[in-house]
Design a binder for these strands. Structure first.
Length: 485
RNA sequence: GCGGAGUUAGUCUAGCUCGGUAAGAUGUCAGCUUCCCAAGCUGAAGGCCGCGGGUUCAAAUCCCGCACUCCGCACCA
């Protein structure tokens, strides 16, 4: 199913919808998760914790969203997380200064250059607005961070543009107090904020968005000394290097040099094993190795994990080898010591990060799971049972003859343990269809026979087949089939 | 931010040319009936027609701004 089908489902069934929508001054790029969306998101994150955090023995923190100016001076975001832009005085169109100059005059100025360099180049080469030939205003920087004023004096601080900065800043304390030992993974789930020029496509480009970030701190001398590598040595990765897409095992990727070392390969391996369990078809995915121009300013080696969707390739995860960029910057700025002892030697750890876009991942899971079952005239959200917002619908075939009461009784027995939805009203087929649309993998129906022999029917979402089971078996069956893998 | 297309009940759409205080389908809720896959009947709720201003006795309809959504450009998780 395509973007519009997913969007419609999201709006109608409470997955997500625009923020502040009743007001005309609502800004673009802000969306809210409804009940189904929150339930899906929570389950997705639980899977992430199981498959990455616990699997690798990482620790998880929860940092502030507002961070001090110094953090972003050190991280480089104040200087680099900004585009030089120029605005036409006549038609008010805005352009990227570096791109416009290179297109018209073939002069390459790095985007981090002084603003005067852009102005000079524009003057000397007589560069005019490509649309209306008007003159440009002076070049200015558009920083994508949201600035906030703290307290009555409005002391400047910023909403974090990525969650990981608190991980870097907290690293010395965590290493000391949590008995740290390299390699050490620290993870965080939370909101990040970027003042995008043009937010677009609901969850896919937001100004306020969720990230699940993992920063693994390691000894740069030991990047090929990875005990756990054997766990993923035979896991297949699809890697796009330049224009060529190749499928190879992690072991082959390291041996051929496509991936620089076992350390990076291990994390790409467990990442793809995680995504396999979300229901996304990983044969439609790739790790795209980024060229120098595409990489973020802090990255030494970068792979984007992308999945093919109906609106094109979508970047879900950025995997960056950040070297000691962050720790040395924070060490210099703060004068704190960020070195740690590994094998009786002082080292400044290097960092490999797995920066996951949660909202985009959830969208992609929905798109891959949503099916149009034309034969039975229904829309089915075939989510993996452990990700479904509702695990089971509890239905009475009819309300009368005590069936309603019996149904309520069963619902009460299981509602704390499972996400169960109780429904008595309307035709039974209609209720099954509704459950199909929110992805409930099971429906339990109480009928007249239930009152005689304490059995119910259990219906499976994907096959629509029904079996009769004992009430006493409901718990063990649901427990088995809604369990995480 | 630019260019193009849109915005009328939860959803989809009619009405706009030719101003006269909103229509249908579907969905939702309640009841009856049937009793295992969107059946039927009855009833109800739900819309300051994206927002603001103007023209007019009167605006969903005409005019002007703005916002948002979608498609391209550029940027990114």
């Amino acid at each position: 199913m395509n973007y519009e089908d997913v969007m419609k489902l999201a709006l109608e069934r409470g997955f997500y919808f625009p923020s502040c929508e009743v007001y005309a001054d609502a800004q673009a790029g802000f969306w809210e998760y409804g009940p189904s969306g929150v339930s899906l998101k929570n389950k997705f994150l639980e899977l992430w914790r199981r498959e990455l955090i616990r699997r690798d023995g990482m620790m998880e923190i929860d940092g502030s969203q507002i961070m001090s100016k110094s953090v972003f001076e050190a991280s480089g975001h104040l200087g680099n997380f900004a585009d030089p832009i120029i605005k036409c005085t006549k038609c008010k169109s805005t352009f990227r200064a570096d791109r416009t100059i290179s297109e018209i005059s073939k002069i390459e100025i790095p985007e981090s250059a002084d603003l005067e360099e852009f102005d000079n180049a524009i003057l000397q080469n007589n560069i005019k607005c490509p649309k209306c030939k008007g003159d440009f205003e002076n070049t200015r920087k558009f920083n994508m961070m949201f600035k906030v004023g703290i307290g009555p004096e409005e002391e400047p601080a910023y909403l974090r543009p990525e969650t990981c900065q608190s991980i870097f800043v907290d690293f010395p304390r965590l290493f000391k107090t949590m008995r740290g030992k390299l390699p050490m993974g620290i993870a965080q789930v939370g909101k990040s904020f970027r003042n995008e020029i043009s937010p677009r496509q609901s969850l896919l480009r937001l100004r306020e968005f969720y990230q699940a970030e993992i920063e693994v701190f390691c000894n740069p001398a030991k990047l090929d000394n990875v005990e756990k590598f054997s766990e993923i040595a035979d896991t297949v990765l699809r890697i796009q290097n330049d224009s060529e897409l190749v499928s190879m095992t992690c072991k082959e990727a390291v041996e051929s040099g496509v991936i620089p070392n076992k350390f990076v390969a291990y994390y790409l391996g467990i990442l793809i094993e995680f995504y396999e369990k979300t229901g996304i078809d990983v044969t439609k995915s790739r790790f795209r190795k980024l060229g120098d121009k595409e990489k973020a300013f802090y990255a030494q080696v970068a792979f984007d994990f992308e999945v093919e969707t109906t609106i094109g390739w979508l970047e879900l995860v950025a995997c960056n080898y950040r070297s000691d960029y962050d720790l040395s910057s924070h060490a210099n700025k703060s004068k704190e010591k960020f070195e740690v002892v590994d094998d009786e030697q002082k080292v400044l750890p290097h960092v490999f990060e797995i920066s996951m876009g949660i909202d985009r991942s959830l969208y992609t899971i929905l798109e891959y799971s949503l099916k149009d079952d034309k034969e039975h005239e229904r829309i089915v959200l075939s989510l993996r049972p452990y990700l479904s917002p509702v695990h089971v619908g509890i239905l009475s075939l009819v309300k009368k003859d005590g069936l309603k009461e019996k149904t309520d009784e069963i619902y009460l027995q299981i509602k704390r343990k499972y996400d169960a939805f109780l429904d008595h009203s309307g035709a039974i087929g209609r209720r099954y269809r509704r459950l199909d649309e929110i992805g409930a993998p099971f429906a339990i129906t109480v009928d007249h026979q239930t009152l005689q022999d304490q059995t119910v029917t259990i219906r499976k979402r994907d096959s629509m087949e029904q079996n009769r089971i004992k009430i006493s078996e409901i718990n063990s069956i649901l427990s088995e089939f809604t369990a995480y893998p």
